[in-house]
Design a protein around this nucleic acid. Structure first.
Length: 423
DNA sequence: CATCCACTGGAAGATATGGCGA
DNA sequence: TCGCCATATCTTCCAGTGGATG
């Protein structure tokens, strides 16, 4: 037997190739989008004022990969011309939910000594995330832009996170004329959310959306091509994949989101499961099977729900616990009114001041958004009302809640659930 | 058919928290 | 320490909805 940590590859040769941040040499199935994108970027090579570009499409539809590829080529090309000084500031706004935070992080990004702006280091200290007036942060940012000079291109990935506070998107494209800057400023906004574009204030839409490129979700066929492109390199031998594996991964992802990221994650998970079975001698052949894919799908979904629950606040957990309690008494689906009534006593038991009705409604919708609860809107009887019930195994929810509260307060619920045989 | 009812969910304001510079 | 700032969370208020009621 080998050691516990054997380096011997079993099925996968290079797992990184199956990650969504691996940059393929060629982005396939997106020819049209790349074409439009290229023409939108062309003015930069000529040293002209850049277009502002807005990309939108669901996650995993190739927006970021396309951007990375084209920006790399663009930077290379610009090196050939003395009169073009292109600086790209690339930032992911995933955890930033206001314009203010984006501005602060842009300043820090530009001042980060390890960041390779093609000109000088700014050599100024980083600034803290809170405590400054917004305008002051903007002023710092413009100062830095002017110091860097040339063409400054901002790539703001997942910009939809800032929600309705879109000041920065109004400010940035106009900064040149407002503050008489010499530097040319361009903004590329990348959004996963279609609605974000519609919800932008009209003044922002005018400027930022000069060039819009829409990345549609991949269909099952396109996803298969993408998976094949990567599987060729990632697996020791493609023969180790059952014929149905790639089509099935593609189908699951196409059905749900059309996201290449999701399809890849599933393929990766399936391969993990297969290797695990091999290692534990539960399987004799080097082979990823259809069953592995189906198991992987369940596993990933479950993981997502648990993460969803984990991110909630204390009262979110209390509301969820209330629904569990009702479920354990077979009283779900339950009306919001009923949930709120019961929630009040649950909260009191935990020594927490119960929230008002409205807020509990919000928590319930949150839970639905996370896929933990299922909502049923009813328009029967007097007026319309909502009912909620658990959309996942009560046992997995209780498991997560046990970590949040203490075990003793959860066990009565578990006992009741067991009594009614729903666990 | 007009009015009422019971509920939903948007909007705005209040409160709590935590970091900043002075 | 204080006053200032941003933000998350929560409360208050209220308009809208659509079947029920008389």
């Amino acid at each position: 037997m080998g050691t516990r940590f054997s380096r011997e590859p079993l099925i996968i040769e290079d797992k990184d190739i199956l990650r969504d941040n691996w940059q393929p040499e060629e982005l396939i199935e997106r020819e049209e989008e790349l074409d439009m994108y290229t023409s939108a970027l062309t003015p930069i090579v000529r040293g002209w004022q850049p277009n502002n570009i807005f990309l939108y499409g669901v996650t995993g539809s190739g927006k970021t990969v396309a951007t990375r590829q084209l920006i790399t080529e663009l930077l290379d090309e610009c090196k050939n011309y003395d009169d073009v000084n292109l600086n790209v500031v690339d930032m992911n706004c995933k955890s930033l939910n206001s314009s203010y935070q984006v501005a602060v992080n842009l300043v820090n990004e530009m001042r980060d000594p390890s960041y390779q702006l093609t000109t000088l280091d700014l050599d100024k200290p980083q600034i803290s995330e809170t405590g400054h007036p917004q305008q002051q942060v903007f002023d710092e940012l413009y100062d830095d832009i002017e110091t860097v000079g040339g063409t400054v291109l901002f790539v703001l990935d997942e910009i939809d996170n800032i929600g309705t506070s879109d000041d920065i998107l109004y400010e940035l494209p106009r900064a040149k004329s407002t503050y008489n800057l010499d530097a040319k400023i361009g903004v590329i906004g990348i959004s996963n959310d279609f609605k974000f574009r519609d919800n932008l204030s009209p003044k922002v839409k005018d400027t930022l959306c000069e060039e819009e490129i829409m990345f549609s979700p991949y269909n099952a066929n396109e996803l298969q091509q993408i998976l094949r492109q990567r599987a060729q390199k990632a697996f020791i031998d493609e023969k180790y994949l059952e014929q149905e594996v790639i089509p099935l991964c593609a189908a699951f992802a196409a059905q749900d989101s059309g996201s290449a990221r999701q399809a890849l994650r599933l393929l990766r998970k399936s391969a993990d499961i297969a290797e695990d079975k091999l290692r534990k001698d539960k399987r004799s052949e080097r082979m990823v099977t259809e069953t592995d894919v189906r198991e992987g799908e369940i596993d990933i979904h479950r993981q997502q729900v648990i993460e969803g629950i984990d991110s909630l606040t204390k009262h979110g957990h209390l509301v969820l616990l209330t629904v569990c309690e009702l479920a354990s008494e077979q009283k779900t689906p339950s009306r919001t009114k009923e949930i709120h009534r019961r929630y009040k006593s649950v909260a009191n038991d935990f020594g927490a001041k119960p929230l008002k009705r409205r807020r509990v409604h919000d928590h319930l919708s949150d839970l639905e958004l996370h896929g933990v609860l299922e909502k049923r809107s009813t328009t029967a009887g007097r007026g319309n009302y909502n009912q909620y019930e658990l959309d996942v195994q009560i046992s997995s929810v209780l498991e997560v809640l046990e970590d949040r509260f203490d075990e003793d307060s959860i066990s009565p619920v578990r006992a009741k659930a067991q009594m009614h045989d729903i666990i």
